[in-house]
Write a protein that binds this DNA or RNA. Structure first.
Length: 271
DNA sequence: ATCATTTGACCGCC
DNA sequence: GGCGGTCAAATGAT
């Protein structure tokens, strides 16, 4: 446990250093751009645009990863606490028995912070919203669209947690036991950029594990995604830092995921 | 007309 | 009693 924490600390530190270094490089490029306002300078700046875009995205990724690593710590603690809650049932309800509802469940929860309100590829129906005491923003509650048809227990709530820059926290509770939610899910295709010689580092939460070129959902056995090469070659995969929530894919491979993108975070590191 | 969202009341837990 | 989570009637959008 102690080793785990120090390893995570190290990972957070590395992410911050990576972000700082790329920001430095970006600053240097911008200074050069500023001092070259003639025609040749503008042309050179245009050539540098892909690098600038790449650098900005790397900085964003670094911040996102740091937040994810940070959140992973707090989520473990929260799950431990919530695991102790026991549902007492509906004791003295004034409502008819059919309207009696459960409150806290044993379902595991995990949160994802996003700068934008993004779709997670699954189908949800909003069933309520609430202003919470500690936050000035309204929290929206969603349940799986197939709750009634397939008795799917998955729920989530979304809350804005920060004004500037905007940050939204989506907290998922329970896993989708329905199949319908995934039928219309657009397969996510991640392509590397061979010309840049880039590689991919994929990180995923504890609900998935990597095994023999396949990403498998722990909760839903029918959910898996194989990693294959576009060139009919064996795909080279390494597990950095012995962290089994991450895999490093070398260039020229293609992935088709039927896993919700918000549960699987992709990061690209240019070569 | 149908379906999704909003809203206020209800309920369990602390 | 306060707070957060859930329900279903009312309302709005298509």
């Amino acid at each position: 446990m102690e080793n785990n924490n120090s390893g995570r600390k190290e990972a957070i530190e590395q992410e911050l250093i990576r972000g700082r270094d790329v920001a430095k490089q970006l600053l240097e490029v911008l200074i050069i751009h500023k001092s070259n306002r003639n025609e040749e300078g503008i042309e050179r700046s245009m050539v540098m645009m892909p690098f600038i875009e790449d650098a900005v995205s790397k900085i964003l990724i670094s911040f996102t990863n740091t937040l994810l690593l940070f959140n992973r710590d707090t989520q473990h603690n929260r799950s431990d606490e919530e695991g102790n809650h026991i549902h007492q049932g509906c004791k003295k309800s004034k409502r008819p028995p059919t309207l009696c509802y459960k409150r806290k469940s044993f379902a595991p929860t995990w949160s994802i912070d996003n700068a934008i309100l993004s779709e997670d590829g699954l189908e949800w129906r909003k069933y309520g919203q609430k202003k919470t005491k500690d936050c000035r923003y309204i929290r929206s509650y969603y349940k799986c669209s197939y709750k009634n048809e397939e008795d799917c227990k998955a729920i989530k709530h979304v809350q804005r947690i920060q004004e500037d820059p905007p940050l939204y926290r989506t907290t998922y509770s329970g896993h989708h036991t329905c199949k319908s939610s995934f039928v219309n899910y657009p397969h996510m295709k991640l392509e590397s950029a061979p010309s840049l010689g880039s590689s991919k580092l994929l990180s995923f939460n504890n609900n998935y594990y990597y095994n023999n070129n396949t990403l498998q959902s722990k909760e839903m056995k029918h959910l898996s995604s194989s990693i294959s090469s576009t060139k009919q070659e064996p795909v080279e995969v390494t597990i950095p830092n012995d962290d089994h929530n991450q895999i490093h894919l070398l260039s020229d491979c293609e992935l088709d995921f039927d896993i919700p993108p918000n549960l699987l975070h992709s990061k690209f590191y240019g070569g």
